[in-house]
Simulated scan of single mutants.
Amino acid sequence: MWEESFYELSIVAGRQQGLITTAQAGRVGVDDAALGHFQDTGLLLELDWGVHQLASSSLGPRYAYPYAAWLAMAPDRFLAERPAAPADDVVLSHESACRLHGLGSFSAPHMVFTSPSPVTAPRATTIHVSRLAGDDIEIRMGVPVTTPHRTLLDLVRSGTDHPALERALTEAVQRDWVDLHAVHRDLVALAADHHFPATGPEFVHYFLSDVEPRSLSPRNLKSYTELTLGDVVQELLPSVLRVVRETHRDGAAPTDADETLSWDIAAEIVGRSRWRR
């Protein structure tokens, strides 16, 4: 009897990182008494929210608890019955996304999700209602989670204190998980309402004071240079643009692409000469 029940349980859980909800177990004929027996014998671990993990599951706590919370948002539906597009379902976000990514130090007691529409949240769960774009989401060990870039924007919008933001942003930039230029561009519109500087040098000094430029990836070194030494890049730009224009052997007029390329080259030259000697 127990063997057949555990077999049915294992089939479903095996498709869900080794996790299964009480409601899902009921759908395959495994009742509370059987679940209790499997827990007593060490075959199952209850993770809370009415979600259980097979002892044989290799999913560690960092991912198991967020995944359990995600399953608990629709406990009666199997994984295959959840929306195919992550943006149509709940997505781990805000402080919980930071903890999953390993950015900063957040100890919020609740799991935080973003949902495209209002939903009933289980206990110890916070829901933000907002429609996410597809490129705002990634899948980490089965867990739909906002990207580091989107997570930082959400933290700012929700009023996270600035020291916590500083640490999370610094780590994301140092690991090259975000494009510093893109983050600054998207945060400029929020600066006045959330009381932090928007201009490049002041923004970098405020949020990235502990960053060593020479340690950054090429793209983020260029972004760092553009934000902090934009005037120097601007001074070099005409010389670079002149060289780029000389490559047009057919006498064609310079294009917007030439301007962009010249700026990128000038920023890279300034960054490398200043911090990578």
Results as ranks from 00 to 15, higher is better:
272 R>D: 07
139 I>A: 02
45 L>I: 07
174 Q>G: 02
191 A>F: 11
167 R>C: 04
78 F>H: 11
115 S>A: 15
242 R>D: 15
73 M>P: 00
63 Y>K: 00
5 S>M: 07
20 I>R: 04
65 Y>G: 00
182 A>L: 12
231 D>P: 01
271 G>P: 06
75 P>R: 10
182 A>M: 09
130 S>N: 11
46 E>K: 12
244 V>P: 00
193 D>W: 03
134 G>M: 03
8 E>G: 00
257 A>H: 13
220 N>E: 10
221 L>K: 01
42 G>A: 10
232 V>T: 15
54 L>N: 03
265 I>Y: 11
99 R>S: 14
230 G>L: 13
78 F>K: 02
148 P>Q: 07
73 M>E: 01
173 V>G: 03
18 G>A: 05
217 S>T: 10
233 V>I: 13
183 V>L: 15
176 D>Q: 08
124 A>C: 01
61 P>R: 04
132 L>E: 07
3 E>V: 02
62 R>Y: 02
81 E>T: 08
24 Q>C: 12
129 V>K: 00
36 G>W: 04
36 G>D: 11
265 I>R: 02
217 S>A: 15
13 A>I: 07
250 D>K: 01
1 M>A: 08
15 R>V: 03
113 F>K: 00
132 L>S: 06
126 T>C: 08
184 H>D: 00
249 R>H: 11
77 R>T: 12
133 A>H: 12
105 S>R: 15
254 P>D: 11
172 A>L: 08
215 S>E: 14
23 A>V: 02
